[in-house]
Design a protein around this nucleic acid. Structure first.
Length: 420
RNA sequence: GUGAGUGUAGCUCAGAUGGCAGAGCACUGGAUUGUGGCUCCAGGUGUCGAGGGUUCGAUCCCCUUCACUCACCCCA
């Protein structure tokens, strides 16, 4: 048997209604905020991710699906969406046509990690990018959209955490202060954190080991090192979130795994996903576009893990398609008659089903039940000789005998009744 | 990359000190019921994850391997 690839899952028909629900709410909410969809390729030049995500990050160092194409060019299956969207904006000079771009995307991303609950090698993200607007109102609006989306999905138990990482002006001073603090407490930290202390000291703040956590209680806070501009920006974001009635917590130990973030960063976290706590995350990335060779444009965006969403969602409010009508045919003549009626219903957009293989009455009724058909039309050769069929209402069990002449109108009447 | 757990029917899982491989669900046919749901009868499937070893004999014990799951790590 040829099996699928580790960490790359089939999404089976029974799971599809949930995915459609997630995507439908996404479009409704995002369109209301003026966001347009953009579709970008799944494969990009490897260099794009090195320059945007950062050479020192785990994603670039050990998680990318990178390969050479037939010409020897190094290509990579995208590990995230922002880089491609920025590349597309620069390549098509979107900022010339409209100074502000509000874009969203959906699709598969690829990272070579050990799979576990809520973490897969091919996973799907919904992302939104608000490009060309430096105002804190952009931050607040984007977070408003995110919370509206979670409300539309009916997902409980998520909380919004925000932080500011400062900018190129203020971050070096903070980093220096943090490194100094960490070197003073090296013996209390775990092995990983000792290693991080030189390469990526901010990650120590994110460590889950108990010893490191307690050390970090007393670590200097980024927020104390923000330059006046960054501090004012963060103050305004908090003010606007409060004015919008969006609950949030400031978490000054939250860091990001991608290098391009600055100023505002945020996560939607939950305790319902096992070891994975982040359902959505993002932040501001002023300077990213310029560093990719584009104009000096600010931007802010987020990404949502769709598998994580669907793990968190109950199935209660997700509509699944059920047939309006199931045709039960007893005997070969009836079967052909039913087949033609079926075709007629389908042509008119009604979802109707029947069995082609000549199963017993019992099996056909069981099938109708299983599919949760609303109405069942029972036709035997005898009844057809009298030009009549029987209609059964599956929920009430009521049954009535109907003439074949004018059946369409009668059925539509019954279906309309049921919808009330 | 590291650690732990699990692999038996389409699905959920039993099983024994090492002695012919089991149940429920699902599926199919039939009986009964007013023509499905309830009840009853009947029916079929397994390389017991794979390879090797010990043994008269291994699904069970040992070794190797693969897959899945969870956790570390990392992240959405």
């Amino acid at each position: 048997m040829i099996t699928g690839i580790k960490g790359m899952n089939d999404i089976l028909p029974e799971e599809i209604p949930a995915w459609h629900f997630i995507e439908a709410r996404m479009r409704e909410v995002f369109h209301a905020f003026g966001f347009s969809e953009i579709r970008v390729p799944i494969v990009e030049k490897t260099e794009l991710f090195h320059r945007s995500i950062g050479e020192e990050t785990d994603i670039v160092e050990k998680e990318m699906y990178t390969f050479a194409d037939r010409n020897g060019h190094s290509l990579t299956l995208r590990p995230e969406g922002t880089a491609s969207v920025m590349r597309a904006c620069i390549e098509h000079s979107l900022h010339v046509k409209t100074p502000v771009s509000k874009l969203y995307y959906v699709g598969p991303m690829f990272r070579y990690e050990r799979p576990q609950k809520g973490r897969y090698r091919q996973f799907h993200q919904i992302g939104a990018e608000f490009i060309g607007e430096a105002s804190p109102m952009a931050d607040a609006q984007l977070l408003h959209m995110l919370t509206c989306y979670f409300r539309a999905l009916g997902i409980p138990d998520v909380s919004l955490q925000i932080n500011s990482l400062g900018c190129r002006q203020c971050r070096p001073a903070y980093r220096a202060a943090l490194v100094e603090f960490i070197t003073g407490h090296l013996d209390a930290l775990c092995d990983d954190c000792r290693r991080r202390s030189t390469g990526n000291p901010l990650r120590v703040l994110d460590c889950k080991v108990e010893g490191c956590r307690s050390v970090c209680q007393d670590a200097p806070s980024v927020l104390d090192y923000l330059c006046p501009e960054c501090a004012a920006h963060f103050d305004e974001v908090r003010h606007l979130l409060t004015a919008l009635n969006i609950p949030f917590e400031v978490n000054n130990r939250m860091v990001r795994g991608l290098d391009y973030y600055c100023r505002t960063t945020f996560e939607m976290v939950t305790n319902r996903l096992g070891a994975q706590s982040a359902v959505a995350a993002g932040g501001r990335y002023d300077g990213l576009i310029a560093s990719l060779g584009g104009p000096e444009l600010p931007g802010i965006g987020f990404a949502i893990g769709m598998e994580r969403l669907s793990l968190m969602m109950g199935t209660e409010n997700i509509p699944a398609p059920h047939p309006d009508l199931f045709l039960v045919a007893l005997g070969p003549m009836a079967r052909e008659q039913a087949f033609l009626m079926l075709a007629d219903f389908q042509r008119r957009g009604l979802y109707a089903e029947m069995d082609f293989s000549g199963k017993s009455m019992k099996a056909q009724m069981r099938q109708a039940d299983h599919l949760k058909a609303r109405l069942t039309l029972i036709m035997g050769d005898d009844e057809l000789a009298e030009n009549r069929v029987q209609l059964r209402h599956m929920d009430s069990g009521e049954q009535e005998s109907l003439p074949i002449d004018g059946l369409d109108a009668l059925l539509e009447e019954r279906l309309a009744q049921k919808k009330d």
